[in-house]
């Protein structure tokens, strides 16, 4: 993969312009992100890392349209989405973004297949093709024989693969992962990272993941180190 600096602006899928996020905690004001600007290009594999409280999660939430910046603009495919209404943001999250969480966030007592199909509930995908799409996603993550198992019947690594299948079902442009290996043993964690690499290299998917683990962060093609709400350096 080529580095971001070599890409031209036409490939920019996501751009943050002068993003500041402050939280009011009582009488104090805490700045989580301080005038951050960032461009993510189509097909990049980006890690965001930094110490605890550095603002990496806040950055991830703003990129994932789960949180609004206090000031600044977020451009997705060149379109400013900072001022969109909640239901419009929900639609973008549904179609354009795929989330993978540290805690997996699968619905308990619900089969793997139904967990994978969950985003389709909120999409325009016709009902008659949903089941087949879910099965194909489970095949992709190697869990086709676990379609009817509930999360409690799966290992941590398997649960995270179900979560990845769920993130992929709507064929999103960007996969966002927040500490995706944080709750996994090293072997399962490595498998998940390998899977992300495959998605990036074979399918050209844009992947952004947050980790506090520097070694893991280095596996990405581009690493953004953040500290005290500012981008310290990019590698």
């Amino acid at each position: 993969m080529t580095k971001s600096s070599s890409k031209n602006n036409s490939n920019v899928i996501l751009e943050l312009k002068n993003i500041t996020k402050t939280y009011a905690t009582g009488t104090n004001c805490f700045t989580a992100l301080d005038n951050v600007s960032l461009k993510i290009h189509q097909g990049e594999f980006v890690s965001i890392t930094g110490p605890s409280g550095s603002g990496k999660s806040t950055l991830m939430h703003i990129v994932g349209l789960l949180d609004n910046p206090t000031s600044g603009e977020v451009l997705l495919n060149g379109k400013n989405i900072s001022r969109l209404k909640e239901h419009q943001l929900a639609q973008i999250r549904n179609v354009t973004l795929g989330f993978v969480f540290q805690q997996f966030n699968l619905l308990a007592k619900t089969s793997s297949l139904e967990n994978v199909l969950l985003p389709l509930l909120y999409s325009d995908v016709p009902k008659n093709v949903r089941h087949q799409m879910g099965i194909e996603m489970l095949i992709k993550v190697g869990l086709e024989n676990k379609a009817s198992n509930t999360p409690a019947q799966l290992s941590g690594g398997q649960q995270q693969r179900v979560a990845i299948a769920r993130a992929l079902i709507n064929n999103p442009q960007i996969i966002l992962a927040d500490e995706p290996t944080g709750n996994l043993d090293s072997k399962s964690g490595a498998e998940v990272m390998k899977f992300f690499h495959q998605l990036n290299e074979k399918e050209g998917r844009t992947i952004i993941f947050v980790t506090h683990d520097m070694d893991l962060a280095k596996q990405a093609n581009r690493t953004i180190i953040i500290k005290d709400g500012k981008i310290l350096e990019e590698k």
Partner: peptide, 16 residues
């Protein structure tokens, strides 16, 4: 609460 958060993250709008 977490389920609601997840549903919102994957595209559920408030009215849904």
């Amino acid at each position: 609460t977490r389920e609601i958060g997840l549903r919102k993250a994957i595209g559920a709008y408030p009215r849904a």
